[in-house]
Amino acid sequence: MTRRLATLIAPVVFLLALLYAWTLAADAKLVNPLWFPGPERSFAKLGEWIATGALWSPLASTVWRMLAGWLAACAVGIALGAAIASSPLARRLLQPSAEFLRPLPASALLPPAILVLGFSNAMIVSVVAFGCVWPVLLAAIHGFGALDARLVEVARLLNFTPWQRAWKFQLPSALPHIFAGMRVSIAIALIVTVASEMLSSQPGIGYLMLVAARAFRSTDIFAGIIVLGALGFLINYGTQRLEGRLLRWR
């Protein structure tokens, strides 16, 4: 019991220590307080955003773009991965193009995306999806191809069709790999969303921070960082819970 309590409290204590270190660093005024506010002022700004409701609209935009791009990437990645793993034709057809596109940084795609789709949500969602698709795709290729040979025979003995085999055998067997890929992707989604907002001036947390920087409103920047950190934390917690439920058998 005391052990459990300790493991629960320890991370909180560490977080408080970090906040205290931040306070000390700010109070020491090594950097001009104009550029580097302490936690007190940053959290006060965050409280002000919540109180006035100024936070919700940009936060909703950012979360929406991030989730839409990520989910689209997951759907495309799983479907393509299943196809590539199951069909030599699909592999020969798709793999060279995939190897060409994969090393491209998602931000390099912003200029052409802006040209084609304009300054829009669709543009950001597409770029986020592009950045997110690779970890899921690679995990799905690996996972769908890694079905135990014995289970392949069980599927044959029960006369399942290729679709039934994919649904009843390969997808569940690939799911642990796919989840690992999806968790890598969600972090990429947050990064690409914020970067895209900054580069394309679309209202959201990223753009809010960029405007704050241009106007020397440093507390806004730090409040934005706190929001993004909390967002990342919550998403990771959510995917972990979902994973625990769906992979109960492990």
């Binding site: 135990d148 014995r150 289970l151 025979e153 069980v154 003995l157 009843k168 055998f169 569940p172 067997s173 799911l175 992979l247 058998w249």
Partner: peptide, 14 residues
């Protein structure tokens, strides 16, 4: 067919 390696012949997620 009943296989010898039962652990591999069962679906671990079911």
């Amino acid at each position: 067919v009943v296989f010898q390696d039962y652990a591999r012949a069962l679906l671990p997620w079911r």
